[in-house]
Design a protein around this nucleic acid. Structure first.
Lengths: 239, 239
DNA sequence: CAATTCTGGTACGGAGTGGTACGGAAAAGA
DNA sequence: TCTTTTCCGTACCACTCCGTACCAGAATTG
């Protein structure tokens, strides 16, 4: 409504709330693997992506797996919204892009002042929680093919085009599976005409086909987001 | 501090905040499979367990898997704390017990009034989010043995004694695995002296041994809880 | 242009798990 | 007590996926 940003949270703010944040928002480009949050380090900035994808990764010793991804529909810095300054998850850029950044210390007083700002950011927090619970479900019940299809769809929702620039190795790390498993599964998808895979690049060709493969693993979190942040058609369309 | 409840959130409230809630709190017994939250139905009550375990289950069509459990360290009704009235996850009693209940409609004005109440409940929300992300990690990387050990430990943290009354079938549903897988894995644990399993009953015998089996899958979420809700030794001790 | 690193294709054995099913023992109900 | 239901022990097969490894082509660096 107010903010003229491609970020759906910013654009969902009322004019007064946007006015609270606007003086502190800074347009930034973010590079691959740039880190926003690290285990038990104070979070300095929150980030509202306009393009690109950020991964929230659950860790434990040397094991890791992605719990959620955030793009132009959301923000990083959930702990700040929840009144804390850190958590144990890592948050870093998975697909480079640009967006709006502000200091966590500037967000805190704005949150304290405006209940309507809290409402929007806590609504997104709920959508985020649902996404992590759906990831837990997908990891428990889904096979590699379905989980990969789910990931590609979630990435597709958050990108401007159909091209996705990342390596098999990184994708395997996110899904918690073998790199070779990503390779062979992508070949299967490619032979079915759903994607085209090149070195460091995956092109989505048949979104409907991917939805069929992902089946029930995809859609619940996206519908919850649309319910919580009305006005956007996130996940139903491309843009 | 204030509330004389076994529930750790209630007892972490300041006296004024406890005073806000106390007129609305109602002591209740909850029975197995009693439901607090269902997909897209308005949440009527929030519940602060004093004993027993509540499961938060992510669903999608006919697939389901547990995303988190809540006992006397927490509460149900996360969507209410986040300013909404429903979500897509089911929440129901996994191990019967008792606790304190209040109407969601009575919690909302209290949350609006008291920033310090919000702070406590949002801090728990963060601990809850971390638990779901750790579940996603465990489901992605852990084998059945480790995931079962993790579940038993998390249940043990939330129960008064060492006895856990539930069936293999139900546990399998929660972990998203076969019922037969639960049976054979429990036998393995029993032959190692970690648990004793009877019909509809599991007795924890060797907590340290279970921690060894669960390895890195257990502990991160519990440490985050202790950091966020200080004063309790949740997870480090029994009681 | 040469050397090195990165990335992806392929292969093999094997452990783990799913799907399924049957029967018996324990508990609940008649 | 008898019947029915619930719950658990066990078994078999199939198959997915992991761990690991090697190599080749692409990209990057010197």
């Amino acid at each position: 409504m107010a903010g003229s940003s491609r970020n759906l949270l910013i654009s969902a703010l009322t004019p007064p709330d946007y006015g609270l944040l606007e003086p502190h928002l800074e347009k930034v480009e973010v590079a691959l693997r740039q880190t926003f949050e690290e285990e038990n380090k104070p979070i300095e900035h929150v980030y509202f992506p306009e393009d690109g994808i950020v991964s929230i990764v659950a860790k434990s010793r040397h094991e890791q797996a992605e719990a959620a991804i955030v793009g132009r529909e959301g923000m990083t810095g959930i702990p700040v919204v929840l009144g804390n300054d850190r958590w144990v998850n890592d948050t870093y850029v998975q697909v480079e892009g640009h967006g709006l950044r502000m200091m966590a210390n500037d967000l805190r007083p704005a949150l304290a002042k405006s209940a309507s700002l809290r409402a929007v950011l806590l609504a997104f927090t709920q959508a985020f929680v649902v996404q992590t619970t759906q990831t837990a479900l997908a990891n428990a019940r889904g096979n590699v093919e379905g989980r990969l299809a789910r990931w590609l769809l979630m990435a597709h929702d958050r990108l401007a085009g159909n091209e996705l620039s990342l390596t098999h190795e990184f994708l395997a790390l996110m899904l918690g599976i073998r790199r070779a498993g990503v390779t062979t599964t992508l070949q299967k998808l490619e032979s079915d005409g759903l994607v085209v895979a090149k070195r460091g690049l995956i092109v989505i060709e048949d979104r409907a086909g991917l939805i069929g493969l992902a089946g029930h693993l995809y859609g619940v979190a996206e519908a919850e987001y649309r319910r919580l942040i009305p006005g956007s058609e996130f996940g139903t369309d491309k843009g």
